[in-house]
Every structure is written in structure tokens, then in C-alpha cells.
């Protein structure tokens, strides 16, 4: 394909260093040059595949180094339903509630596919391992692997299991620059239907090496968990240097 004349050609490399925006692309007639059109499509394709690739619980379980797991589904039966009915993604499938072991758990980790199963396949197991390793003496419940799940499904799960705290590790909505971003949402004593997003603390953009590393994210998360347990609260009542409000806007 031919290189299209770029207006101000020598200018753009310096300006691109200041923004990821797709600037100085040049034109083919009125349209984008071929390589820029394909680059845009490539980014969109990665995002689409991350949204629509099926969740593979085995992949996550294999990375959990022998930790016990339980598998559940939400009430959203398939991807199109999941995308159109967020309310169903927040509720347990009626027959799967019985799979959840009730106990005196300090915390349950829920690995949820959310809007990027790719993020979960790549990062969730390592995050569980790294975080659990920083919780000496905690009674950690079997890890729940949840399909077609939204963040608030964790409320239903923790409530059903009798867990004092829930950490939901979930695939975030893919953007054009990152399709594998994992989010972590921490909620103390959630009650389905009563707990709101303001009751959660969250870490976003967990995706080493470009985003948060596992070590950094797990350190921060374990710190919040310790403080949350001590104060008996999470969310806006638990001060957190991470950008709470901003992240909540993008809750999957």
C-alpha cells in the first residue's frame, strides 16, 4: 500500500508523544489511509473477541495452584442475554446456589468473566494467588468461578456462603488500547439488592506489564481488605488513594 502524504509530516512524531489519540493520520481523499483504517479495525477486533470469547473456568482453575474451586453461572443464559440484561448477570442461576459451600469464611474470591474473559484468563489466577499469600490467618473460601457475571453477582455469592467479605476479579469493558484489563472490587458483608456501588472499593487496569502489576495490585488490595475488616466497612467509608469515583463509572 502506498504511503499517503502527511500534512505537517515532521510535526506529528513529537505531538504523538503527548497523546495516544489517533492524530496526524493523513488522508486518502477524504478517508483514512489504509493502514490506519486497518489499525482501528485491529483494535476493535481485539476488544470484540475479548467480549465474546467464552469463559474457560479450567484455564483459571489450572492457575490456582491447587486452591479449591466452585463453578456457578448467573441467571443470564448466554452472551446476548448477558449484554442486554445486566439485572440477570447480578443474580445466581437458581440451581447453582446449592453448589456454594456455606462456612465461616473471612473472604471469598469470585473470578467473574465480566466483559473480558481474556483479562480473566490472563490475570485472575495470579491475582488470587498473590492476594491470598498476603492474608495470613484468613479463612479463605473456595474460589468461585462465575460465568456471565457482573460485579454484583459477588453480593449474592458471598451472602449465600456466609462470607464476611467478597473480592470480585472481573474482566473490564475492553477499550481500543487494552482488551485484557482486570478489575478488582472489594465489598464488606454485601446484601443482594441493598449493597450499592458506593459500598465497594476497586482497583482497575490490572494488566502487567502495561497496567498495574500483580504485586502492586495484590499489595493494595490486601491492605484495603485488612483495613476494611478492621473498620467493618468498604466503599466511600474506607479511604483509598485509588481513584474510586472514576473507576465506578466503568463498572462492568
Amino acid at each position: 500500500m502506498s504511503e499517503v502524504t502527511l500534512p505537517g509530516g515532521e510535526l506529528w512524531p513529537a505531538l504523538r508523544a503527548r497523546t495516544q489519540a489517533r492524530i496526524g493520520l493523513g488522508r486518502a481523499g477524504s478517508a483514512l489511509p489504509t493502514r490506519h483504517r486497518l489499525a482501528l479495525q485491529a483494535a476493535h477486533a481485539a476488544a470484540r473477541d475479548a467480549v465474546h470469547s467464552p469463559f474457560e473456568p479450567d484455564t483459571v482453575a489450572a492457575g490456582l495452584a491447587g486452591l479449591a474451586t466452585v463453578r456457578v453461572r448467573s441467571a443470564a443464559g448466554d452472551r446476548p442475554t448477558y449484554l442486554q440484561r445486566p439485572d440477570l448477570g447480578r443474580r445466581l442461576h437458581p440451581t447453582d446456589r446449592a453448589h456454594l459451600p456455606v462456612g465461616d469464611w473471612d473472604v471469598v474470591f469470585v473470578v467473574a468473566d465480566g466483559l473480558s474473559s481474556r483479562a480473566v484468563h490472563e490475570h485472575a489466577a495470579a491475582m488470587v494467588r498473590e492476594t491470598a499469600a498476603r492474608l495470613p490467618g484468613w479463612r479463605v473460601a473456595p474460589v468461585v468461578l462465575a460465568e456471565q457475571a457482573r460485579v454484583a453477582l459477588g453480593d449474592d455469592i458471598a451472602h449465600a456462603m456466609g462470607a464476611a467479605m467478597v473480592v470480585v476479579l472481573i474482566g473490564e469493558r475492553p477499550g481500543m488500547s487494552a482488551a485484557d484489563s482486570l478489575g478488582a472490587y472489594l465489598t464488606y458483608r454485601p446484601t443482594p439488592g441493598v449493597t450499592t456501588d458506593a459500598d465497594r472499593n476497586c482497583l482497575s487496569n490490572i494488566r502487567p506489564p502495561l497496567g498495574l502489576t500483580y504485586e502492586a495490585a495484590a499489595g493494595k488490595l490486601a491492605g484495603l481488605m485488612g483495613k476494611g475488616r478492621e473498620l467493618g466497612v468498604t466503599g466511600v467509608g474506607l479511604k483509598d488513594e485509588s481513584d474510586h469515583a472514576n473507576v465506578i463509572d466503568w463498572l462492568p
Binding site: 489519540a21 489517533r22 483514512l32 481500543m176 488500547s177
Partner: peptide
């Protein structure tokens, strides 16, 4: 720019 808003995603 290029049909992609990097702030609003």
C-alpha cells in the same frame, strides 16, 4: 481523532 476517543473509551 481517527474515530476513537481515548478518554471516554
Amino acid at each position: 481523532p481517527g474515530g476513537d476517543d481515548i478518554m471516554l473509551n
